[in-house]
Design a protein around this nucleic acid. Structure first.
Lengths: 221, 221
DNA sequence: GAATCGTTTGTTGTGTGCAACCTAACCGCG
DNA sequence: CGCGGTTAGGTTGCACACAACAAACGATTC
C-alpha cells in the first residue's frame, strides 16, 4: 500500500512508481505500457498515467508513438555508447567546476553517500545501490554551481542507470571497485584539484561502462 | 487560421503555437499561463494544453508549480550564463565528432541554411532567422552521429534562443557577423578539421552570448 | 492459395465535470 | 489603523466518457 499522501500529485506518484518498477526489473525493455493497465494497477485514472509516461519519455526511458502507445525503451548498443560518451563529458565538466567551489557541507553529503553505498553492497541491494550512486553523482553536479548542467547530468544519469538494470543483470557487487573510486574522487575534491578529480571521474565512468554486457545490435533499417 | 491538420495531435499544435508566440514576443517572461485562457484562444480543451505546458516545462521554457499553475520562464543572468556554458561544451563536442563523419548531403543542408539565413537578414525577419539558425546548429548536432547528444543540443538551443528573444530586443541584424561565421564553420567541416571547426564554433557562440543585454539579477534568497 | 478489403477490437486523443487547492480580497476585531 | 481569520473567486488535479485512430483478424474474390 502506498504511504498516505507522501507525493504531491498522483502523476508524480505514478512517475516514481514506474521508475521503481523499472529499477526492480518488474518491467522489461521494449515492453508495451498501455495506459489503462497501469491506471488500474495503481488505482488512478488514465490522466495522471499519461502525464507520467510523457515525463518518462522526455527522459528517454520510454518511447511514445502518437496514436499507438508507449513502450519501455529498448536501447541499442550504439545508443548506450552514445549516452556514456555524453555522460562522461557532462560529468567531467561538472566535476571540474565543482572542484573549485564545493562546500564542506556538500563534501560531507558525498561521504555520507559512500557510507550508504557500503551498506547497499553488504546487503546486496541493487536498488539501494543505484539510488545512492545516483545521489553521489547528483551531489557533484549540484556542486558545480550550474543548475542547468545539474539538470542535464541528472537526466543522462537516469538513462545510463536504467541501462545498467537492463543489461547488467549479474552485476558483481563484490568485485565492483565503485566505492574506492568514489572515495578517491571525494579526496580530489577535498583538495580542490580539478585535474585530478576529472581524471578520476573519467576513469570511474569508463570502468562502469565496460561492466555492461551489451546486447546484440537489434537496429537495422 | 491554422492549416488544416498539419499537426498529428492537438497537443503538438498547442506546443508549436506556444513556442511561436514566445518567439514572436506575444508572451512576456514570467507571465502567467492559465490553461483555460490558452485553451479557448486555440479552440481546444484544457487537456492538450496541459500536455503542451508540461512539455515546455521539461525544456525549461516554462515553470510549473503544482496546484498553482504555469508561468513563462524568467531566466536570471546567472541562468543564462550557465546555459551558454553548457551549450558551448555540448556544441563543441558535437562539431568535433561531426567534422569526422559529416556527409555531403548534410553539408549541402548547412549551405542551404545559410542561404535562407541571408534571406531572413535582408527581410529583417527575426523569427525566420531564429528558425534557420536553429536548423543550422541542429544539423551539425545530428551530423555528430550521436543521437542523444543531438537531443540535448536541441534542448539547450531552444532555451538559449528564447533568451535571445527575451533580452536582445534590438538585435542588430545588420552588423551581426553570424553569416560569415557560419560559412567559416561549414568550410572547416568540409575539410574535415575538428580543431578548426571547434575553435570557430566556440568563437561564434561566445560572440552571440555577448550580444545579450543581460537584465539585472532578480535572484536573491 | 494469395491478396485485398471490410470489420472488429483494443488503445489512444480529447472534451468535460467536479472536487481540491491556492490566492486574494474582505470584514471584523483588537 | 493594522492584523488575523474567513470567505469567495479562480485555477488546477483528476476521473470519466466519447470519439478517432491503428492494428489484427477474417471474409471474399481473383
Amino acid at each position: 500500500m502506498r504511504e498516505a499522501r507522501f507525493y504531491t500529485t498522483s502523476a508524480d506518484y505514478v512517475y516514481q512508481d514506474l521508475r521503481h518498477r523499472i529499477i526492480t526489473k518488474q518491467l522489461q525493455p521494449g515492453q508495451r505500457l498501455p495506459e489503462v493497465n497501469i491506471a488500474v494497477q495503481m488505482g488512478v485514472s488514465r490522466t495522471p498515467v499519461r502525464e507520467a509516461l510523457r515525463r518518462l519519455a522526455s527522459e528517454g526511458l520510454v518511447t511514445i508513438i502518437p496514436n499507438s502507445g508507449a513502450r519501455l525503451a529498448c536501447p541499442s548498443q550504439k545508443e548506450m555508447e552514445n549516452a556514456y560518451v555524453l555522460r562522461e563529458h557532462l560529468e567531467c565538466l561538472a566535476i571540474r567546476l565543482a572542484a573549485e567551489r564545493i562546500s564542506e557541507r556538500q563534501l560531507r553529503r558525498l561521504e555520507d553517500s559512500v557510507i550508504e553505498e557500503e551498506r547497499a553492497f553488504h546487503e546486496r541491494d541493487l536498488k539501494l545501490y543505484l539510488e545512492v550512486n545516483e545521489n553521489f553523482h547528483r551531489t557533484i553536479a549540484e556542486s558545480s554551481g550550474n543548475r542547468i548542467l545539474a539538470e542535464y547530468v541528472e537526466n543522462i544519469l537516469a538513462r545510463t542507470n536504467v541501462y545498467i538494470v537492463f543489461y547488467d543483470p549479474f552485476y558483481d557487487i563484490d568485485t565492483n571497485p565503485s566505492i574506492p573510486q568514489h572515495r578517491a574522487i571525494i579526496a580530489a575534491l577535498a583538495e580542490r584539484s580539478p585535474e585530478k578529480a576529472e581524471a578520476l571521474m573519467r576513469e570511474h565512468l569508463r570502468f562502469s561502462m565496460e561492466g555492461l554486457q551489451l546486447p546484440k545490435e537489434p537496429e537495422e533499417f
